[in-house]
Every structure is written in structure tokens, then in C-alpha cells.
Design a protein around this nucleic acid. Structure first.
Lengths: 142, 142
DNA sequence: TTAGAGCTTCCCATCGTGGGAAGGTCAAGC
DNA sequence: GCTTGACCTTCCCACGATGGGAAGCTCTAA
């Protein structure tokens, strides 16, 4: 099948399929005489695997390793679980960071009237407070 | 003062100060005869404001508006609160998404031995399940 | 034969930040 | 005075994952 159908069945865009090939997540696809990429059912399975892992937020580099573990019949499930646990910790960290930001923002908003008067504790807070969010660390909101 | 000190006092990098100027978040800085940017205490206050707003995860475009509201003595606090509420909703959405991902991942990991055997429900789940986030119960690992 | 859908590669944009090169400026110590 | 090193300037590139779109080729159905 062509890239369009493989992408559709795999639940990703054709654009992403080419991208995954370019970064070595997928092996180089065979080509027809007219240079069209050709895919098999197996490739569709791989695309689905990638899609699911991306849905869970695994970064591409981890997915690369997960794919190789998946294909390796002599793998140990230990490494897989390690990767999952690492990702879980990152999710936890992120959730905590965002929750701290949320709490700080709610705190600032609490006393803002939100009417036509200019007084605004939110602006005052941004201007003068030293907004410390829990433990210091990189705050990435997205 | 020069850009280095202003950046330090504002809690951001000199690189970012130049960037903020280039995207119109800061007005164009005056220059010395030798083309060095010159900053005042007022600029440092603005940098601090930006820094705090970034710490709370506000996108640059919102910060642009917050800054102009801050400088406008005839503002209504309503608009400020609107922006904050919008950001709060986005934080909530993101926290919810991440929590759903986390729950799904924990579910997958639950039955993985994480030892030297190859059997791995995590890989099986990525390969075969239709990991639907946000519907508790639809992701099941036997 | 032609239209249009699908394929190819290539470049650009996102968003906020950092890295680094190549070169100009300044102040302190000799 | 001259050297050294810290600081400044602009410019380009990178990240991660994705989408948009242009220009051009291929395939298929009418």
C-alpha cells in the first residue's frame, strides 16, 4: 500500500510517516518504480505502536528504544518498565508543577474584582511579588 | 546600565532581553555611542513583570497585553481577570490530560513484572490496545 | 486525453530558549 | 601605551513534534 493508506490505518499523518523515516524511527521504506513508498501490514502495526506511545507522551527517543525492545524476543521486561517508570515520574513532576502554578494563579485572582475599576491584585502580584512555586525548578507549561 | 546587569536584576538572560525587544514585548532600547543597549530601573521592573508572568506560564502574547494593562491607569481589572481565567482553564485542561495519561500508563504498568523475562503487558498494550484517554475503564490490562 | 487525487522533495513556522561564531568595546593591570 | 578578559553587538542554528504549502511527478477513472 501507499503512504496515505498506511498512515490512515496507523492513525497518523502521511507527513509524520515520512518524518519518522527521516529520523530513523522507521526503517527506510521500499519504493515502487515511480519512487512511491510502499508499506505492509507490519508497517501499519509499527505505526499504531508509535501512535499509542505518542498518545501516552513518550518522547521519540524512548519510542525508538521501546520499538527495538518490542521487536526483540529476548528482551527483559525490566528495561521496558524502567522506561515507563521514568516517564511516569516526568508526568508526575509536570502535573505537580502545573498544579503549583494553578494554585499561585488562583491565589492572585482571588481578590481581583474583575470589574471596571483599575485596581488589580493580579497585576500587583506580577509586578511586586516574588512568585515562588513550590520547589525551584524549570517551569514548562506545555 | 548595560544589558547584562538589567538581565541579572530582572531575573532573565541577556539573550532573552534582546529577544523580547525583537518581538516588541520591550520597546527599543536606547543605545550608547558604541551601540550598547542602555537600561533603567524601570526597565528592570518590566523585566521582572515579564519573568513572573512567564513563571506562571502566560504566553508572550498575553504578557504583551498584561503589560499594556499594567501601564494603563484607566484599565479595567475585568480584562486582566479574563486573561487569568483563560490561562487557568488551560492549566486545568493540561493537568487533566496529563492525569489521564498517567492513569492509563499506571494501568499498563500494573501487571508488568519488570524482570528478566520478555513477557510485557506494557509493550502488549502499546501494540494492541486502543488506548483511549479520558474514559476510565476502556483501557484494560488483563 | 484530461482532471484530480495522491505522491515526491524542500522549505518554512510554531514557541521560548540556548549555543556559538565573528567581531567591536571597555576597564584593569602591567 | 598595550594586553587581557569580560562584556557587548548581530547573525545563524538547534530543539520536538507537527502542520502548511509550493512545485512538480504519477496514477486512475471518466
Amino acid at each position: 500500500m501507499n503512504i496515505g493508506q498506511a498512515a490512515k490505518l496507523g492513525g497518523v499523518s502521511a507527513k509524520m510517516v515520512r518524518h519518522y523515516e527521516s529520523i530513523g524511527l522507521l526503517s527506510t521504506a521500499k519504493r515502487t518504480a515511480s519512487n512511491y513508498r510502499v508499506y505492509s501490514e507490519k508497517d501499519v502495526h509499527i505505526l499504531r505502536f508509535i501512535k499509542q506511545a505518542r498518545t501516552l507522551g513518550f518522547p521519540i527517543e524512548h519510542i525508538k528504544e521501546l520499538l527495538s525492545l518490542w521487536h526483540n524476543q529476548r528482551r527483559s521486561s525490566q528495561r521496558v518498565k524502567e522506561l515507563a517508570q521514568k516517564h511516569l515520574r516526568e508526568l508526575d513532576t509536570r502535573i505537580r508543577e502545573l498544579s503549583e502554578i494553578k494554585a499561585t494563579l488562583e491565589n492572585l485572582m482571588q481578590h481581583c474584582h474583575g470589574d471596571d475599576r483599575p485596581e488589580c491584585p493580579i497585576l500587583d502580584g506580577l509586578a511586586t511579588k516574588n512568585l515562588r512555586l513550590g520547589r525551584p525548578g524549570t517551569v514548562r507549561v506545555k
